[in-house]
């Protein structure tokens, strides 16, 4: 433990990790530090700490209703999508994993194949379809698209997970007189919590971060998402870098705060899904 060679080696390892952490943190630090500089100072001091930190940029961003509207819109889409896709996927995965019916394997294969569809590929036909049935710029229209894009992976993951649950647990439940739906909600889902957590995180991040679907299917100014909003925001204020950075900092705050609070669940959830 106190072997000097180990100590030196550990020092190197710590230094390497520190360097990696520095690179990982640099953009966030730059974003926050810059947001605290007056515009005039940024022109002459792009790297250093602010000499006299100002909060005017944060105040300007937080004082504009747009940001909160965009966040609200994104939160709505994330919630709708995650609820819809998780419910749909859980039901289907349970049936695929635990029931016998014709077309079972075909359905699973189809789901898996749909995972291969890059979102951009769906844009053309969906845009035409949505134009014809008037779903452009509607929340439910966008939620359906998001849900459909994330559900195939969810079904795949949950099916895999449900299959790992020991058969005895089901048999015991059936003896107790539980129906399928009760088994699903009372036994399977609680056991599958790590996998569900993974899904919620991955899918929520995916929808929250999406720009492509958002700019095409939510054209109405009042329905703009946070990502589409900041894209516009940075275009509007691209000559006021500190203000832009304040906007970016505020926009990333919800996820960073959630991450800090739920850091362990975050990482554990992702791990659970990744390496079954």
């Amino acid at each position: 433990m106190t072997n000097p060679r180990t100590l030196v080696a550990d020092g190197f390892k710590q230094a390497a990790l520190g360097a990696a952490a520095l690179v990982a943190l640099a953009p966030t630090v730059f974003m926050i530090v810059t947001a605290l500089k007056p515009q005039s100072e940024y022109m002459v001091n792009k790297v250093g700490l602010p000499r006299e930190p100002v909060l005017e940029h944060f105040r300007a961003v937080l004082g504009s209703p747009e940001f909160f509207r965009w966040m609200g819109n994104s939160a709505l889409l994330v919630t709708g999508t995650v609820l819809l896709s998780t419910a749909v996927a859980a039901l289907a995965a349970y049936a695929i994993a635990r029931m016998e019916f014709r077309g079972r394997l075909t359905l699973l294969a189809l789901c898996t194949a749909l995972m291969a569809v890059p979102p951009v590929v769906m844009v053309v036909p969906l845009f035409v379809l949505y134009t014809q049935i008037g779903l452009i710029s509607s929340y439910h229209g966008a939620i359906l698209i998001y849900a459909a894009l994330v559900t195939p992976f969810s079904v795949y993951l949950l099916t895999t997970f449900f299959r790992t649950i020991p058969a005895e647990m089901f048999e015991a439940a059936v003896l107790d007189g539980a129906g399928d739906f009760q088994i699903l909600t009372r036994i399977v889902l609680p056991l599958a919590l790590p996998a569900l957590l993974t899904l919620v995180i991955v899918n929520a991040l995916w929808v929250w971060n999406d720009l492509l679907i958002a700019v095409i299917f939510l054209q109405d100014d009042a329905k703009r998402t946070l990502m589409a909003g900041i894209a516009v925001f940075q275009g509007r204020y691209n000559n006021q870098i500190p203000l832009t950075m304040a906007g970016m900092a505020v926009a990333s705050a919800p996820m960073i705060i959630l991450y800090i609070i739920f850091q362990r669940q975050f990482v554990r959830g992702l791990m659970a899904g990744a390496v079954k």
């Binding site: 100014d221 894209a231 516009v232 275009g235 509007r236």
Partner: peptide, 23 residues
């Protein structure tokens, strides 16, 4: 006018963020 980001079409150009949104 202001260049912006998500242009749906090349023509769109300018930038957005109407101060007032859909009024």
């Amino acid at each position: 006018t202001l260049p912006l980001l998500p242009q749906m079409r090349r023509r769109d150009v300018l930038l957005g963020m109407g101060a007032a949104g859909a009024a």
